[in-house]
């Protein structure tokens, strides 16, 4: 399997893991191990005064695993920049999963704020991986703004509904000059395999593993699915976006000169 390279760093595993919703830190840690992942996301929260809670990072950090802090909870680019700065300071990494989803019902990312924040954070030296709509034009704009990868959604976060955006993901993959990580909505190993077969560079999975009956076994299942889907892609599946090319119904003359 080809190695995945993001911002000059090589990854042997194409499965990224989120740390939310596990029933214990020990279970999460075992799932990280079983998944073979080399990229693990963490969020941030306010420290409760007088709280002697177990240190999450001790369960996440291990050799060969890149920590990917997210900006979950921010509502706009301004807040994202502060959250990113706090994350860099707290965790000592410039890597960042930028996520700006002010809408609490569907948690859909705000494209305008995400692009604005990407432009600013790239200039501040962050390695920015924006969680974004499966919008091929937006993904190109994020790439031009310096995003190290793009992370379009398959379906809303935590819904396990699979690749509802499949056709657009295919166009994104076809056009992308940076790695495409399918994030959100992947609810079963078959969804992850499907994403990899259509040429995604990696998948980010959280809920489907964390809330499974046996999360560690499910992590292993996802690992195999991602490897299998990628192997099939590299072996040359007859997948093409050609049939999706638009046919103009209005004249495409350059009437504005």
């Amino acid at each position: 399997m080809e190695k995945l390279v993001i911002a000059g760093r090589e990854f042997s595993s194409r499965l990224f893991l989120g740390t939310g919703k596990f029933s214990s830190n020990e279970q999460m840690s075992a799932a990280i191990e079983a998944s073979g992942t080399e990229m693990v996301t963490v969020a941030m929260k306010r420290v409760e005064l007088g709280d002697a809670e177990d240190d999450l990072l001790a369960h996440v950090r291990r050799p060969g695993v890149q920590l990917l802090p997210n900006t979950s909870g921010v509502r706009d680019a301004e807040e994202a920049v502060l959250a990113a700065s706090l994350a860099r300071e707290a965790f000592g990494t410039e890597w960042l999963k930028l996520e700006i989803h002010p809408d609490p019902r569907y948690l859909l990312p705000d494209s305008v704020e995400t692009l604005k924040a990407t432009e600013r954070l790239v200039k501040m030296g962050f390695v920015v991986l924006p969680y974004c709509q499966a919008d091929p034009t937006l993904c190109k704009r994020l790439e031009e703004a310096g995003a190290a990868a793009v992370m379009p959604l398959g379906a809303p976060i935590g819904t396990n509904r699979g690749l509802r955006t499949r056709d657009f993901l295919q166009i994104i993959v076809e056009q992308a000059g940076v790695p495409v990580v399918v994030d959100a909505g992947i609810g079963a190993p078959s969804h992850a395999a499907e994403a990899m077969e259509l040429g995604a560079s990696a998948c980010l999975v959280n809920t489907a593993i964390a809330v499974a009956g046996q999360p560690v076994e499910m992590a292993r299942a996802f690992r195999m699915a991602v490897e299998s889907g990628r192997a099939a892609y590299e072996a040359g599946l007859p997948v093409s976006a050609a049939s999706m090319e638009a046919q103009a119904s209005s004249p495409l003359t350059d009437f504005l000169g």
């Binding site: 596990f22 963490v42 969020a43 941030m44 306010r46 999450l56 976060i157």
Partner: peptide, 30 residues
């Protein structure tokens, strides 16, 4: 007050009456 205070400045960063501080740490999340 809404601005990061880098660790290197903690020793000399003076406190002021009514200041609003936010201290964050890692949490589980996807």
């Amino acid at each position: 007050d809404g601005r990061l205070v880098p660790r290197a400045e903690w020793d000399r960063f003076g406190l002021a009456e009514g200041q609003t501080l936010v201290v964050v740490k890692a949490a589980c999340g996807g």
